[in-house]
């Protein structure tokens, strides 16, 4: 198993918060590539997620702003109620278009645009959830040569989303949450 280069992008929905906290804690204080986290949540949660994660994470966490350059040793959280897109020039765009799969942010949109911008040097990780979001995005990651990691549905809090993606898109690695830091 090799460490990630380029960009790591993580998508999660219902039941993924604990997995993310575990995963971030596992990074310890080492250098990491840029990490973008796209998490479904109830609207109106505002910036509390970024605040919560920055308490738990050894790596600096910020809520993504539009036009942010994507830099290593930084974790970017997609803001509530906007889609997060990755540009070819490795900056972040935000977009307030229609919800997709009942979700904004949409994991598919972030995965697809990241796949186009980073190609082979992208690692996409899909976690627990009760939604079909992420599957189309992972297909794009594969098509562009990136690496696909799916949380083991058997140990995910909600199996549906990782299971769906595993069946429809397939994975390079299927890991438990505590094993994921080893490949970042």
């Amino acid at each position: 198993m090799s460490a990630a280069k380029g960009l790591v992008i993580i998508g999660g929905s219902a039941g993924s918060l604990d997995a993310i906290i575990q995963l971030l804690a596992g990074l310890k204080n080492r250098h990491v590539p840029p990490i973008i986290i796209v998490l479904h949540r109830k609207t109106g949660d505002d910036s509390t997620l970024a605040e919560l994660l920055s308490i738990k994470s050894p790596v600096p966490v910020k809520e993504a702003d539009e036009k942010d350059p994507i830099r290593s040793d930084t974790i970017y959280i997609a803001p509530a109620d906007y889609h997060l897109l990755v540009e070819q020039d490795h900056t972040i765009s935000l977009d307030y278009s229609e919800k997709i799969n009942y979700s904004r942010p949409s994991i598919d949109i972030s995965f697809q645009t990241a796949a186009e911008a980073y190609g082979k040097s992208l690692t996409a990780i899909l976690l627990s959830g009760a939604n079909a979001d992420g599957t189309e995005g992972l297909k794009a990651v594969k098509a562009c040569g990136g690496r696909v990691i799916i949380q083991n549905p058997a140990t995910a809090e909600v199996a549906y989303m990782p299971q769906h993606a595993l069946e429809k898109a397939g994975a390079d690695l299927v890991l438990n949450a505590n094993e994921i830091p080893m490949v970042i």
Partner: peptide, 9 residues
């Protein structure tokens, strides 16, 4: 315009 959104639309 930001390219990624335009391309998606």
């Amino acid at each position: 315009y930001s390219k990624a959104s335009l391309k998606r639309r």
